[in-house]
Design a protein around this nucleic acid. Structure first.
Lengths: 197, 197
DNA sequence: CAGGGAGGTTAGCGGTCGTTAACCTATAGG
DNA sequence: CCTATAGGTTAACGACCGCTAACCTCCCTG
């Protein structure tokens, strides 16, 4: 991973603050003036960087879905030939990293999808579907007994489990990031194993 | 359970439709005119039944949290003296019934809490906290080894798992309500067992 | 050193939305 | 039979919000 050391661009600042605000108060609950104020400029100044409020949400959601999918694809590729169990663990680990590090995005991801333009929503849905199918494939390699509809349901449910991080209290009250990640990982594996039983 | 046979009152119709609309498009995304239209009256007519749009959301959220809590208390009481495992199963079953039968409310429950007046939000949060603590208590009876913070995280995560029903596709594409309920139940138990390991 | 683009600013327009006001109608009770 | 009340209606107000217009000011470049 090529770690970023240079300062974030203004666009990136805006996206980050917009994500936080959208997650806190909902897309319709946040005004452009607030987003601007959060990065030190005022409302209409945002239009030098984005076509509109919708465009910010679209870029956020497409970005999340895309990064999740490409990350999963990369993990699958890197683990090619190894045991399916290890691949599943890698997928879980990647999703947990995301859920712990980008909590506002996780929140947006399944909350504000319907506020997108039709074309953007279709794109996001397609990326999400590919991501799910990837998990389903790996899951059925680990547990060949599980039927496809059940596997798909199980994957969605485990996403619900992993995406519960925003409800886990502020990062201070947690037992520590590492411990939380391990707990979530164990629970996800336990849930999958039980689904296959 | 005293099954209702009489027709729903207008207030109940409004609440039901409002819940559906809020879940679909978000609190700020739905206008009072739409809510009115959904029950066959027009916008301002709603004010004969509710003090305002906020009041509808408040009644919905307080109602959900309250019913969840009282249902859980009742289950705990009925199972008094029996094995802790059975009580946990009963709690899970109750939550699944709710998640499958009242999907719009489940969605609202963790999505629109921040849109409430301070006093209402505090009330809902208190009810939710009691509900969680009740689960934590039972969970720690079943798995005495698990520490309290971990138990609380585990409970929140399993709520995420069980509340994933809105993402499971429309009731037609599911393997059937009973099968879905069983799958969710197994996964919840598997996740808890893994959390305690 | 001109000048043009990048990135701001404030003012204001147009539409939407929650809410209130004023008025209407049916029905149940004295 | 009169009338109060429950439950509607439409019109309209005021606030807010997304966005555009018009303008300003650096700074980089030829």
């Amino acid at each position: 991973m090529a770690t970023r050391t240079d300062a974030p661009t203004r666009r990136e600042q805006i996206l980050k603050e917009a994500a936080r605000l959208f997650a806190e108060r909902g897309f319709h609950g946040v005004g452009v003036d607030e987003i601007g104020a959060a990065v030190g400029i005022s409302g209409p100044g945002l239009y030098r960087h984005f076509a509109g409020k919708d465009a910010m949400l679209a870029e956020l959601l497409v970005g999340i879905s895309g990064r999740l999918l490409t990350g999963a694809k990369r993990r699958l590729q890197e683990a090619d030939g190894t045991a399916a169990e290890g691949v599943l663990d890698s997928l879980i680990e990647g999703h947990i990293d995301f859920a712990l590090d980008d909590r506002p995005l996780i929140t947006l991801h399944d909350r504000e999808l319907d506020r997108l333009r039709d074309s953007d929503r279709k794109l996001v849905r397609q990326l999400q579907r590919q991501y799910v199918e990837l998990w389903v494939q790996v899951l059925r390699e680990v547990y060949p007994g599980i039927a496809e509809p059940a596997a798909r349901s199980a994957v969605h449910s485990v996403f619900g489990l992993l995406n519960s991080t925003p409800h886990l209290g502020r990062p201070g009250s947690l037992p520590g990031r590492g411990a939380t990640a391990q707990l979530l990982h164990r629970m996800a594996r336990g849930a999958f194993a039980a689904a296959a039983a």
